[in-house]
């Protein structure tokens, strides 16, 4: 680690810090007006991405859960592989790839958030499915219910609160992550951050940081509120 660092820069850091700090203040409040559209985009990236991720994660979770998977030796490992791949790769890397593949813009951001969310939601959901009370499943099965009816009557009611909690939790995380996806060209606030950084407009960067923090705080509050309501 040490050999690649230019120590002159490190020694210089306090001066740099005070320099940047000086340039960051006072914030250029007028810039705020240019941020409403990116903020709306960021919100959409997070929300639509979460939606896509959750919709795909549901079947994956059922295929991955030991007690609902149709085959333990083939389908389950496949589902687990999807979960691991999605989880191990950060959404910024997903965005990097998708911008290279389908071009810059909101769509790349949405798909990146969606792909990253699949693994997260599916993992927590399949753990919830594996923890359900099997007695209730057995009882519904004993009435002569079909496979789908067993899922509908015995499994879904048991995992529904966990499902809402996980989804809202992921939405909260996604708001956080979608604020910076623009750094690699995937739209939203990060795009403004990137352009302000490249023009060394530090007083605009301050405004963006403050908007990001405010958004994160609000989304955290909303998610805590919703989670308390469903649990």
């Amino acid at each position: 680690m040490t050999e690649d660092t230019i120590w002159a820069f490190v020694a210089d850091a306090p001066r740099q810090a005070s320099d940047i700090g000086g340039r960051m203040l006072p914030p250029r409040w007028g810039y705020l007006n240019q941020l409403w559209q990116p903020l709306w985009d960021t919100l959409n990236i997070a929300t639509l991405g979460t939606l896509i991720g959750v919709i795909i994660a549901i079947p994956v979770a059922f295929l991955a859960a030991g007690n609902t998977t149709p085959s333990r030796h083939f389908v389950r490992p496949m589902a687990l592989l999807i979960i691991v791949t999605s989880r191990s790769i950060n959404s910024l890397i997903w965005a990097l790839l998708l911008v290279a593949i389908i071009g810059p813009g909101l769509l790349a951001g949405i798909v990146a958030i969606g792909l990253r969310s699949i693994g997260f939601v599916a993992k927590l959901l399949y753990e919830a499915i594996e923890e359900i009370d099997e007695n209730q499943v057995e009882a519904v099965r004993a009435t002569g219910a079909s496979r789908v009816q067993v899922i509908d009557y015995a499994i879904i009611p048991q995992i529904l609160p966990a499902f809402w909690g996980i989804s809202v939790f992921r939405w909260d995380i996604n708001i956080r992550e979608s604020t910076i996806l623009g750094l690699v060209g995937a739209g939203g606030l990060g795009l403004q951050l990137q352009s302000s950084l490249s023009t060394l407009a530090w007083n605009q960067v301050t405004v963006i940081f403050l908007v990001i923090v405010a958004t994160v705080v609000v989304s955290e509050w909303v998610s805590a509120k919703v989670r308390r309501a469903v649990l």
């Binding site: 007695n135 209730q136 002569g144 009611p157 048991q158």
Partner: peptide, 19 residues
Amino acid sequence: RQARRRIGMIFQEYALVER
């Protein structure tokens, strides 16, 4: 399944779908 529906079953811990 059609045979199972002809047999009613009552369980130890009630096994109702609680929610």
